[in-house]
Every structure is written in structure tokens, then in C-alpha cells.
């Protein structure tokens, strides 16, 4: 079947099997490899992207379900390849990443979280990231990064 999805502001289209997962559409059809796959059970959140502005796990969305909608991946946060987005800038500033594998999903989950509630506390960030697993950072600096990106003082 044919799907048409606006990805990072660009119209894309492809003829895909109905069972094609959105994450595979992004990675294999479009070559956008930032979005990673970390599990089979909608648990880890490494594949998190924005669908019409809201975080979703792209391993649990069919490309067909995104037909006609807009998707944003981490590649779409910057036009010029720099850390111009407050979330990516804060992740570097606060050392919110190590191996980088969970990072694109974590960043997109954070973007959605801040969009929905910029007035975040540490507890809000922790519960707001419950759908994203990281094995390297112990979340300490990820939580700080999200607070910084939301304009909060992580040491408060």
C-alpha cells in the first residue's frame, strides 16, 4: 500500500507492506537512522518519535497508521546539524548521554514532555520518562538535562 507521511517537514511517500512498522519506514525507506530499536515489547522507548507533535513508540505504530500525518525524529530538531534545540543542547551540557543508543528516543520523549508541561519538577520528569530506558547514565543527568531544557534549575 502507498503511504504519504510528512517527516521532519518533508513530504515522503513509499509503497510498503501494511505490516511495515513506522520505525522501519523511517530507518529503511527514508534512511533516517537516528531512531533506534531496543526491544520488541513497547518497553524501552528507543524508537520514540513525535506523531503529530506527540511522543509515540514508532515500533508500535504501523506506517499505515501514520499515513497523512506528520512525524518528527531527532534529525528534525536541527536544520543545520548543530545543537540549536534546547533539549539537545541541554543533553550535551548536562552529559545526559553516554553510548547514545537511547538518546534519540529519550530526546523526543523529553521534547513531548516539555511541550505538554513546561512547568516540570524532578518528579514530573522522572515519571514523564517512565517509558524510556537508559542503561548507561542512571538517568541522573538525563533528568537534569530535561529540567534545564524546560528552563528549570536542576540544583533547586
Amino acid at each position: 500500500m502507498k503511504v504519504e507521511i510528512n517527516v521532519n517537514g518533508t513530504a515522503t511517500t513509499a509503497d510498503v507492506e501494511p505490516r511495515t512498522l513506522l520505525v522501519h519506514y523511517l530507518r529503511d525507506n527514508l534512511g533516517l537512522k537516528a531512531t533506534n530499536i531496543g526491544c520488541d515489547t513497547t518497553s524501552c522507548g528507543a524508537c520514540t518519535v513525535l506523531l503529530d507533535g506527540e511522543s509515540v513508540k514508532s515500533c508500535t505504530v504501523l506506517a499505515a497508521q501514520a499515513d497523512g500525518l506528520s512525524v518528527t525524529t531527532m534529525e528534525g530538531l536541527s536544520d543545520d546539524g548543530t545543537l540549536s534545540h534546547p533539549v539537545t543542547a541541554a543533553f550535551r551540557q548536562e552529559h545526559g548521554l553516554q553510548c547514545g543508543f537511547c538518546t534519540p528516543g529519550m530526546v523526543m520523549a523529553a521534547v513531548s514532555l516539555i511541550e505538554e508541561n513546561p512547568d516540570l519538577t524532578e518528579a514530573d520528569v522522572r515519571s514523564g520518562l517512565e517509558g524510556n530506558l537508559c542503561r548507561c547514565t542512571g538517568y541522573h543527568n538525563i533528568v537534569r538535562a530535561v529540567l534545564v531544557a524546560a528552563g528549570k534549575d536542576p540544583d533547586a
Binding site: K33, E75, T82, T88, R92, L97, G100, F101, T103
Partner: peptide
């Protein structure tokens, strides 16, 4: 390392 990881993502 971070700018690459935070823009195009790592290359695994």
C-alpha cells in the same frame, strides 16, 4: 562525541 549523537544519531 555529543554533537553527532544529538543530531544524526550514532552510527551503530
Amino acid at each position: 562525541e555529543d554533537p553527532a549523537f544529538l543530531t544524526k544519531g550514532g552510527t551503530y
